[in-house]
Design a protein around this nucleic acid. Structure first.
Lengths: 172, 172
DNA sequence: ATGATTTTTCTGAAATTTCTGAAAGTTCAT
DNA sequence: ATGAACTTTCAGAAATTTCAGAAAAATCAT
């Protein structure tokens, strides 16, 4: 397979994957393109490579910066802005966890804290309240686990986690 | 807050969260409704509660069954089918991991295995190949970790994981 | 301060996804 | 075998998301 074909395939695949995770397809494609570029790219480069408009490119570059997945750079002598992606995938993973936690988990927890205050007398009320409390416990544990993963600096995080579970599961 | 209001809020919130994760909003709402119902519900119940059409209800119920998140039940004497959700949230989480792994991670790995075979001489080719190999390593580790989590039967999974990380991180 | 260059915003259009409702299909008691 | 009860399918409609392109704003060299 030639490089150009391989690049196109990867960009397409990453875009598809993104959309399955609620991420705008173009945003994921821009990210893919920057992940595989040795040099940082300008908005014009990206527009050309992906055949998208200036407005679209700008919007998605902005969103990627907002997610902390890419950064702006200036090239000496150039007036344009250039963009490059964080390429350490463990950092990328941690950054995504961090953002999703902030944007989704924390607001959910607030809502659950409200909802679990419902008065519970009827079976339906009791069931509802119990589920809210279970969810609350679940999200709290998940939050704590995420915090640990986000803080951890090493890629061995998962490796050791796996080894650990391997041992513990013998007790079952 | 009254139960009816609380239920509506929860269903709405779960739907919104779902759509941020690439899950059809109505599908998430049907799931939410079943999560908080002490009794199993018929398609008609669900249509009425959520104000959706029969076709829509049917489609999303099937999808939820397909994801392994709800099941059919028959009530004695009744001809209709009834539906109920798995309510153990740790089981739900594991089931979602299992399905996303199968549907998304495994296909990605296949693609990466192809792409990392690209010939690498030019800097751009070398960068590309390196990223494909990094991604491949990353997804393999993730797959292994997921398998462990999916197999694990206990909710203490995360708790102990956390404790473990807490210790290890002191070495940094 | 000026104007050339680049970035950002915004609106209507296009594309995609989701939904409805009716028709077709299935199941089951008789 | 029939038909009532229920489920599934599907084509067109509706809703939502994404996008292009032009206009506005910002930036920078002079």
């Amino acid at each position: 397979m030639q490089l150009e074909e391989a690049k196109a395939n990867f960009i397409q695949e990453w875009g598809t994957l993104g959309s399955k995770w609620g991420i705008n397809r173009t945003m994921a494609q821009v990210h893919a393109l920057l992940l595989i570029s040795p040099e940082s790219l300008s908005a014009d480069n990206i527009m050309e490579e992906l055949n998208i408009s200036r407005g679209n490119a700008n919007m998605n570059l902005r969103a990627l910066i907002d997610w902390g997945l890419i950064r702006k750079a200036r090239k000496p002598g150039e007036r344009k802005e250039f963009f490059y992606a964080e390429k350490d995938l463990w950092k990328v993973a941690r950054q995504v966890m961090k953002e999703r936690k902030r944007r989704e988990l924390e607001p959910l927890q607030q809502v659950l804290d409200e909802l679990k205050r419902v008065e519970a007398v009827e079976p339906e009320e009791i069931e509802f309240k119990k589920m809210m409390m279970d969810l609350s416990e679940f999200t709290n544990t998940a939050e704590y686990a995420l915090d640990r993963m986000i803080q951890s600096e090493q890629k061995w995080m998962f490796d050791t986690f796996i080894k650990f579970l391997g041992q513990k599961n013998k007790d079952n």
